Simulated assay, not measured.
Amino acid sequence: MDAAFVALVVIVAVALAFDYTNGFHDAANAIAVAVSTKALTPRVALALAAVMNLVGALLSTEVAKTVGAGIIEPPSGTEGLEIVFAALVGAIVWNLVTWYFGLPSSSSHALIGGLVGAALAAVHDVQWLGVLDKVVVPMVVSPLVGFGLGYLFMLLILWTFRRANVSRANRGFRYAQIVSSATMALGHGLQDAQKTMGIITLALFTAGEIDSFEVPFWVVLAAAGAISAGTYAGGFRIMRTLGRRIIQLTPAGGFAAQTVASGVMVTTATVFAVPVSTTHITTTSIMGVGSTRRLSAVRWGVAGNIVVAWVVTLPAAGAVAALAYLVTDLVVG
């Protein structure tokens, strides 16, 4: 069996492993709020999120094309496969570190940081304009949009239901959260599963198995299945951070945060085809909703720790990926 083909099989397996860790790392994004408000039990919420992640992953491949062809120049040959492998190692290691400490960092940015770090270690061309337009700008803008829309949408709900019976309204919003949780998971599948599709397609293109950067259908199915399985495995550490440690939301607040976050995720995936962080958008939507009570209601110390994790994700994953590339190149060479 050809060594390059074996390397490709290993990379596909590692990419699906990353997709799985992405699922359990980011499962909390879709369900933490619904569980904390008791709209859903954890296992029912995870099952719902797994199914909708699967559906979302099957709907589009535009973000996959951005990740696979818009961050670094598509490499070729053995060096190209080493770059893709090292990028995945960097992303997986950072995912596991932040999962262990219960920090909702971005799996998306871990993967992109891994690509850039491995490419730099290999002295391979990085598309810096693409990184700026498709990663850095959305990384800054999307959390601000999530916070602002979360705040405004919650104010609208409070005004609309200002004379409603509280217990009856809470019961209604708990039912509504089932829908908003499903939409959140759909948006997560649209965004995060596609990033793995992009990496696998990049590996296939690099190895010469495909002639153009079109995502094969089997790659779509594999990535969708992996992230769905990972989602069902759960992410209870991060669920606790998002659901309770930032702020304890009411059912109305949970519905508002999830509706805003899912709207931003679906729009960025389908209209702009940019790989935004589902974690960033979810977290800032929760902060925006919580701020309608009073600014001190949000535990800004916890929020600050999360922001630090966001800032260091790109360089940290990149550093691990660069080291992984150097080690891989030494072993292969």
Rank of each mutant, 00 (worst) to 15 (best):
D2Y: 05
F5H: 07
L8R: 05
V10N: 14
V10A: 12
A13F: 15
A17K: 00
H25E: 09
H25S: 01
N29Q: 04
P42R: 04
P42G: 11
A50R: 02
L54C: 09
A57D: 13
L59T: 10
E62Q: 14
T66W: 12
I71W: 09
E79Q: 08
G80V: 03
I83G: 08
A87K: 11
G90D: 04
A91P: 02
L115H: 07
V116P: 01
A122R: 02
K134F: 11
V136G: 00
L144D: 00
V145E: 02
F147C: 10
F153H: 01
A164F: 10
F173K: 08
I178T: 10
I178W: 15
S181Y: 03
M184I: 05
Q191I: 00
Q191C: 01
I210T: 12
L221H: 03
G225H: 04
A226F: 10
T241S: 05
R244K: 13
R245G: 00
Q248K: 14
T250Y: 13
P251L: 14
P251E: 06
A252S: 15
A257N: 08
S262Y: 05
S262F: 09
V266E: 00
T267R: 05
T270P: 03
V276F: 10
T283I: 06
T284H: 01
M287C: 02
G288L: 04
R293L: 06
R294D: 14
L295A: 12
G301A: 04
I306G: 03
V308E: 01
V308K: 12
W310T: 03
A317D: 04
V320H: 01
A321K: 08
L323F: 15
L326F: 03
V331D: 01
